[in-house]
Amino acid sequence: MEGMRLRIFTEPQQGASYDTLLTVAKATEDLGFDAFYRSDHYLAMGDSDGLPGPTDAWITLAGLARETSRIRLGTLMTAGTFRLPGPLAIAVAQVDAMSGGRVDFGLGSGWFEEEHTAYGIPFPKEKFGRLEEQLAIVTGLWSTPQGESFSYDGKYYSLKDSPALPKPAQDRIPVLVGGLGAKRTPRLAARFADEFNVPFASLADTETQFARVRAAAEEHGRSADELVYSNALVACVGKDDAEVARRAAAIGREVDELKENGLAGSPAEVVDKIGRFAEAGASRIYLQMLDLSDLDHLELIADQVQSKLS
Score class of each variant (00 low, 15 high):
152 Y>E: 08
156 Y>M: 09
93 A>H: 14
122 P>H: 05
155 K>Y: 01
155 K>R: 03
152 Y>M: 06
133 E>L: 12
84 L>Y: 15
125 K>Y: 04
93 A>R: 14
121 I>K: 00
151 S>F: 05
149 S>F: 13
90 I>F: 14
144 T>I: 12
101 G>W: 03
120 G>C: 03
141 L>K: 00
84 L>I: 11
130 R>Q: 11
127 K>S: 10
122 P>K: 01
110 G>T: 01
111 W>T: 06
113 E>F: 08
121 I>L: 01
86 G>P: 08
98 M>N: 03
104 D>C: 04
126 E>H: 14
153 D>K: 01
118 A>T: 05
104 D>Y: 06
99 S>A: 04
102 R>P: 15
106 G>M: 01
133 E>S: 14
133 E>H: 15
152 Y>P: 05
125 K>Q: 02
121 I>R: 01
86 G>S: 13
98 M>K: 05
132 E>I: 04
109 S>K: 05
151 S>P: 06
99 S>P: 02
120 G>M: 04
145 P>N: 07
120 G>K: 05
142 W>F: 10
94 Q>D: 12
100 G>S: 08
133 E>I: 14
103 V>N: 10
106 G>D: 01
121 I>H: 00
112 F>V: 03
136 A>E: 06
154 G>D: 11
94 Q>W: 13
113 E>I: 07
130 R>A: 03
98 M>R: 05
125 K>A: 06
137 I>E: 03
94 Q>N: 14
111 W>N: 07
84 L>Q: 15
104 D>T: 10
94 Q>M: 12
103 V>Y: 12
96 D>I: 13
123 F>E: 04
128 F>N: 09
113 E>N: 11
119 Y>K: 10
115 E>Y: 09
129 G>W: 15
101 G>N: 04
106 G>I: 04
127 K>H: 14
139 T>V: 07
153 D>W: 00
142 W>S: 09
115 E>C: 12
153 D>L: 00
86 G>F: 12
111 W>Y: 15
137 I>P: 02
115 E>N: 10
86 G>E: 14
155 K>V: 02
83 R>A: 13
87 P>G: 03
100 G>Y: 07
127 K>P: 08
131 L>C: 03
133 E>V: 13
123 F>V: 00
85 P>I: 08
89 A>L: 07
153 D>T: 05
102 R>L: 14
130 R>C: 06
131 L>Y: 08
103 V>W: 14
90 I>P: 09
130 R>I: 07
108 G>L: 01
120 G>I: 03
123 F>S: 04
